[in-house]
Design a protein around this nucleic acid. Structure first.
Length: 894
RNA sequence: GGGCGGAUAGCUCAGUUGGGAGAGCGCGGCCCUUACAAGGCUGAGGUCACAGGUUCAAUCCCUGUUCCGCCUACCA
C-alpha cells in the first residue's frame, strides 16, 4: 500500500499539476482574507536557475505557503526580466554562430530575433521554479517588456522629465568598449591589480626645464589639455600659469591650480585629460579647458590621437611609453596597485568616456528613501544592512540610465529634425512623450521628421517599478489596491543598491507609499570551499540536478536549514544527502502509523480523547511548544531555526521516543490505550506534516493525502489546510516532567549497556531505588522502561538493596542497578564510576566557587542563586551515591 | 581610504535580552529490536582567535591586535 521508501520523482510532477489544476496558488483580487503579497525578484530570461535563485525562491515559497495556510489571501507574483545587455550579448553570440550580426539584421530585425529567442528559451527558468515547487500565481506572471509594464516605464520617464528629475547631457560615464554602451557606476566592478605608475616629463614652452606628472594611464596624455597642481603647493607656486608643451603632439597646454589635487600623490602635479577622467572633467569645467576625445566607442584611438589612430587603447599605451622613452621624457616607472573598473557583464576594462547620456537626478528621491527606512516604515532584515543602505543613499550620485543597445525600453524621446519655429528651437526640438507623437507639438512638423532617441533604458529602470507595475500601475487596479504595498521583498544583498534602493526611491515617488514593508536579505551561496560559484570556476551546483538526485524537498530543506541570517552558506552536496535521510525518516514514520491503523480504529480529534497515556500527553505538549516556536521563528525570518526545530522534534522526540513508546500501546490489549495512541500518532503526524509543508511541500502533501479520510475533511489539499497554531495542542508541564524521569531511567540503563558494550541480545534486569514520589511514576510507566531499555523484570522501590555484582547509574531521585551476574567486572565498573565522579566534580567545583563568592550571593538575581544551589546539591548527591557504590564494590571485591 | 561581517568539537555551522556551550556530518563501541541499515542505542571530542576592560558573572557587552571574507570610494 505504501512503498518502503519515498520516491520524489514519482510524486513531484503529479502533485504540482494537482495544485495548479485546482488553482490553489491563485490569489483573489478582492477577498475577505487579509492580503499577503510577495513580488519575485524577476530572474533574467537569459539565465537558468542557479542555486542562489533556488534559495531565494525557497524562502519566498516558505513564506507564501505559510501565510496561505494561515488564512491569508496570499499572492506570490512571478515574472522575468528582459536583462538588456545580457540578453543582447547572448543573442548576438547566437547570431554570430549563424554567420549573422545585428548590423546586418537592422534594429527591427534584431529585436524580432531576440523576441524569438525569448519565446524559445526565456521560460526555462520559470519551468525550473516550478520544479522547485514554487507556489506562484502563474496567471499573474509578468515580463518587464510587457505592454503594461512598458507603459508604466514611459509614464515614469515622462513624469520624472517633466519634474526636472531626468536630464540629458555630456558627462563622463563608464563605457564598456565591448558591449558598446554606457553602464552605471554600479555596473562597474572594481578589482585591484598590479599596475604601474608612469612619471612623464612635460617640458615648459620656454625651454627652461619641465614638470613631471604621474599617471597610470599614459595613453590618455594624448588628450591632455592642462597640467594641474594644488594651489597651496609651494613647490609649484611659481609654475602656475606657465605653458608646457605636451610631448609627442606638441600641443601647448597651461599649468593650472586646483584644490582637487593631492600634493602627496606622485609628484603633486597631474596631467588633466577632461574627456577621459571624471576628476579631470570637473577640473576642466571649472577652468574652461577644452575636451579632446582621443578614443572611439570600441576602445581604439581616434583622429585626435595623431599617428596612434586606430590602435587599441592598450597597444597605444605601450607605444606611447616607447615613444616617450625615445624622447627622453619618461622619467620613471614604479609599481603601483590600481583599482581597475571592469564591466560586470563581460569583464572588459571600462573606459571613463565623455558622451551624451540621460540621467536621473537621484538626490531628491534618495531623501525620502532614507527616511522610509530610518523611521521604520521599511524594515531591513538583518538590520546590519541598514548602514550600507544609508551609506549608499547618502552619497548617491546621478544615475546614468541610457544604454546604447537595442534590446530594452526605448527612451520615449523624439527629436524634431525641422525645428521650424522659435518655440521648437528653444526646446532644442526635444519631445518627451508617453506615446509616439504624430506631429511636432512645437512646430507641427510631420511624424516623419521626428526621430526617436536611439537609446534604451537601463534594465534596472524598469525593475525599479516592478512592485507596482506588475500590479497594474499606472491604472488604479483592484490588484494594486489589494496587494500594494507588498509585504516583503526577499533578495540577496548583491542587488541591494541595484534594485532594492531604486524600488524604494521610485515606489515612494510614484505611489506615495513604500513598495514593501520588509526587506529580507538572505545569504549568498558559495561552494564547499567558500568561493563564489561561477561558471568559469566550474564550481556551480545545478539545482535541477539536486532535485533529480535528492528530490525538491530535501534540496529545499537543506538550503533552509543552512541559511542563517547574515552569513554565507557553504554548500556541499553531502548536506543534501543528510536531509534526504530526514525525508526518508518522515516517510517511514508515516508509513509505520498508516500500516498500524485498522478498519476498527475510530479516528477522533485528540481533544475528545479522555484516557491519554503519559507518552501521549507528553508528545502533544512537546508538539504544542514546537508549533509556537515554528510560527515565531517564521515571523522573525529565522528559517534555519524553524527547520532545525522541526528536524529535532520529528526525528528525536516523535520518532525516537514517542513512536517507540506508542508501540506498546498499539500492540497491547487495552483498546482505550490503543485508541488514544492511534489518534495521538495521527494528530502529531498531521500537525508535523502541516508544519513542514512550507519547507517540503511534496512529501508532506503526498503523505497528508494518505491520511484516513476524517483527517482530511476540512480541505482537499494540505497547501490550503490551516497552519497549526499553538492552541491546537495542549501544553502539559506535568507530563513533560514525568516523561523526563522515565527517559532518565531508560537512558541510564542504556548507557550502562552501551558503555559496557553489552549486546542487546543479552537479557538484563533492572532495579531502581527511588523516592516515594517517583516510585509511582515509574511503576505506572514500567512498560516503556522495559521496552525501550530492553530489560526483562524491573524492581522499583524505596529500599532496594544493590546486588553486589551490578552496574549502577545515578539520576536525580534514582539509583539504577543493573545486575550483571556472570560477566561482571568489578574493577572495570569502579573505573567507570570514578571517571563519572571526576566529570561531575569538575562541574560541581565551578558552582562551589560561585556559591562561595559573597558578591555572587548578594548581587546575582535570586533565581540564579537558587538554580545554582539546586544544581550543586544534585551534583553532590550524585557524587555521594556513586561514591557509596564504589565503596561497596571495593568491599565486595575483597 | 571608509564601512561591514566572520574566527566555537576533526569538518560545516547554531547559540535572540550576559548565569559556565549545542546540532549535523565524521570518528570509537554494541546491534539487521517486525516504520526506517538512508536505521537504532551509546561514547569520545571544546582555555568559544589573542590581549585588555566593564560586571558578582563574559562565547555574548566595550577597546585594541592578528588572520580571513565582503561591500564601498573622484588612491591621478
Amino acid at each position: 500500500m505504501i512503498e518502503k521508501s519515498y520516491n520524489p520523482k514519482e510524486v513531484e510532477e503529479k502533485l504540482y499539476n494537482f495544485w495548479i489544476e485546482n488553482g490553489y496558488f491563485r490569489a483573489e483580487s478582492r477577498s475577505e482574507k487579509p492580503p499577503y503579497c510577495i513580488v519575485i525578484p524577476p530572474p533574467n530570461i537569459t539565465g537558468s536557475l542557479h542555486i542562489g535563485h533556488a534559495l531565494d525562491a525557497t524562502v519566498q515559497d516558505i513564506l507564501i505557503r505559510w501565510k496561505r495556510m494561515s488564512g491569508f489571501n496570499a499572492l506570490w507574483l512571478p515574472g522575468t526580466d528582459h536583462a538588456g545587455i545580457a540578453t543582447q550579448n547572448v543573442v548576438e553570440k547566437e547570431l554570430k554562430r549563424q554567420g549573422l550580426d545585428r548590423g546586418k539584421l537592422g534594429r527591427d530585425g534584431f529585436i524580432k530575433k531576440v523576441w524569438e529567442w525569448k519565446e524559445e528559451y526565456g521560460g526555462k527558468i520559470i519551468y525550473q521554479l516550478k520544479r522547485l515547487g514554487a507556489s506562484c500565481d502563474w496567471g499573474r506572471e509578468r515580463f518587464t517588456l510587457d505592454e503594461g509594464l512598458s507603459m508604466a516605464v514611459r509614464e515614469v520617464f515622462v513624469r520624472l522629465y517633466e519634474e526636472g528629475l531626468i536630464y540629458r547631457g555630456d558627462y563622463i560615464i563608464n563605457w564598456c568598449p565591448r558591449c558598446h554602451t554606457a553602464i552605471s557606476d554600479l555596473e562597474v566592478e572594481h578589482e585591484e591589480h598590479r599596475g604601474k605608475l608612469y612619471y612623464l616629463k612635460y617640458p615648459f614652452k620656454d625651454g627652461r626645464g619641465y614638470v613631471i606628472v604621474a599617471t597610470t594611464r599614459p595613453e590618455t596624455m594624448l588628450g591632455d589639455t592642462a597640467v594641474a597642481v594644488n594651489p597651496d603647493d609651494n613647490r609649484y607656486k611659481n609654475i602656475v600659469g606657465k605653458i608646457v608643451r605636451l610631448p609627442i603632439l606638441n600641443r601647448e597646454i597651461p599649468v593650472i591650480a586646483d584644490e582637487l589635487i593631492d600634493p602627496s600623490f606622485g609628484t603633486g602635479a597631474v596631467k588633466v585629460t577632461p574627456a577621459h577622467d571624471p576628476n579631470d572633467f570637473e577640473i576642466a569645467r571649472r577652468h574652461g579647458l577644452s575636451f579632446i576625445k582621443i578614443m572611439t566607442g570600441d576602445g581604439r584611438m581616434s583622429e585626435e590621437a595623431g599617428h596612434y589612430k586606430g590602435q587599441d587603447r592598450f597597444k597605444c599605451r605601450e607605444n606611447v611609453i616607447k615613444d616617450l622613452k625615445k624622447l627622453g621624457l619618461l622619467s620613471d616607472i614604479k609599481d603601483h596597485i590600481i583599482s581597475l573598473g571592469q564591466c560586470y557583464r563581460c569583464n572588459t576594462v571600462v573606459e571613463p568616456y565623455l558622451s551624451k547620456q540621460w540621467f536621473v537626478k537621484t538626490k531628491p528621491l534618495a531623501e525620502d528613501a532614507i527616511r522610509a527606512v530610518m523611521d521604520g516604515r521599511i524594515n531591513i532584515i538583518p538590520s546590519g544592512w541598514r548602514n550600507s543602505y544609508f551609506d549608499w543613499m547618502e552619497n548617491i550620485k546621478d544615475w546614468c540610465i541610457s544604454r546604447q543597445i537595442w534590446w530594452g525600453h526605448r527612451i520615449p524621446v523624439w527629436y524634431c529634425q525641422k525645428m521650424q519655429n522659435a518655440k521648437c528651437k528653444m526646446q532644442n526640438g526635444v519631445i518627451v512623450s508617453r506615446d509616439a507623437p504624430t506631429a511636432c507639438p512645437y512646430c507641427d512638423a510631420e511624424a516623419a521628421a521626428l526621430k526617436q532617441d536611439e537609446d534604451v533604458l537601463d534594465t534596472w529602470f524598469s525593475s525599479a517599478l516592478w512592485p507596482f507595475s506588475t500590479l497594474g500601475w499606472p491604472d488604479k487596479t483592484q490588484d494594486l489596491k489589494t496587494f500594494y504595498p507588498t509585504n516583503v521583498l526577499v533578495t540577496g544583498f548583491d542587488i541591494l543598491f541595484f534594485w532594492v534602493a531604486r524600488m524604494v526611491m521610485i515606489g515612494l515617488k510614484f505611489t506615495g507609499e513604500i513598495p514593501f514593508k520588509d526587506v529580507y536579505i538572505h545569504a549568498l551561496i558559495r561552494d564547499a570551499l567558500g568561493q563564489k560559484m561561477s561558471k568559469s570556476k566550474g564550481n556551480v551546483v545545478d539545482p535541477i540536478e539536486m532535485i533529480e538526485t535528492y528530490g525538491a524537498d530535501a534540496f529545499r530543506f537543506t538550503l533552509t536549514a543552512f541559511a542563517a541570517q547574515g552569513r554565507d552558506v557553504k554548500f556541499a552536496v553531502d548536506k543534501v544527502e543528510g536531509y534526504r535521510h530526514f525525508i526518508n525518516k518522515i516517510w517511514n514514520a508515516a508509513r509505520f502509523i498508516l500500516i498500524n491503523i485498522t478498519e476498527e480504529d475510530e479516528i477522533k480529534p485528540v481533544k475528545e480523547i479522555s484516557c491519554l497515556s503519559l507518552a501521549d500527553r507528553w508528545i502533544l505538549s512537546r508538539l504544542s511548544g514546537v508549533i509556537s516556536d515554528v510560527n515565531k521563528s517564521l515571523e522573525e525570518y529565522r528559517f534555519n531555526d524553524s527547520a532545525n526545530i522541526l528536524y529535532q522534534f520529528i526525528w528525536h522526540e516523535f520518532c525516537d521516543w514517542y513512536l517507540e513508546m506508542a508501540k506498546s500501546s498499539l500492540y497491547g490489549d487495552d483498546k482505550k490505550t490503543r485508541h488514544a495512541a492511534i489518534n495521538t500518532l495521527l494528530h502529531t503526524l498531521e500537525m508535523s506534516l502541516s508544519l513542514l509543508h512550507p519547507f517540503m511541500p511534496y512529501i508532506t502533501e503526498k503523505l497528508w493525502q494518505s491520511l484516513p479520510a476524517p483527517r482530511r475533511a476540512v480541505s482537499k489539499s494540505l497547501c490550503i489546510h490551516p497552519y497549526p497554531r499553538a492552541e491546537d495542542s495542549i501544553k502539559d508541564e506535568n507530563a513533560e516532567g514525568k516523561m523526563n524521569t522515565i527517559m532518565d531511567a531508560i537512558t541510564g540503563i542504556r548507557t550502562i549497556r552501551g558503555e559496557l558494550n553489552l549486546s542487546p541480545s543479552i537479557e538484563l534486569k533492572a532495579m531502581i531505588k527511588t523516592t516515594n514520589g517517583t516510585k509511582d511514576i515509574l511503576n505506572e510507566n514500567i512498560v516503556y522502561i522495559s521496552k525501550l531499555a530492553r530489560v526483562k523484570g524491573i524492581e522499583i522501590g524505596e529500599d532496594i538493596k544493590k546486588p553486589d555484582d551490578a552496574a549502577i547509574a545515578v539520576k536525580p531521585t534514582m539509583e539504577i542497578f543493573v545486575p550483571l551476574k556472570g560477566f561482571f567486572d568489578a574493577d572495570a565498573e569502579i573505573k567507570r564510576l570514578e571517571k563519572e565522579i571526576l566529570k561531575i566534580e569538575e562541574s560541581a567545583s565551578f558552582i562551589r566557587k560561585k556559591l562561595a563568592n559573597r558578591e555572587f550571593i548578594g548581587k546575582a538575581p535570586k533565581t540564579v542563586v537558587e538554580e545554582n544551589n539546586t544544581k550543586y546539591e544534585e551534583f553532590i548527591e550524585k557524587i555521594q551515591k556513586i561514591q557509596e557504590n564504589i565503596e561497596k564494590l571495593k568491599q565486595w571485591r575483597k
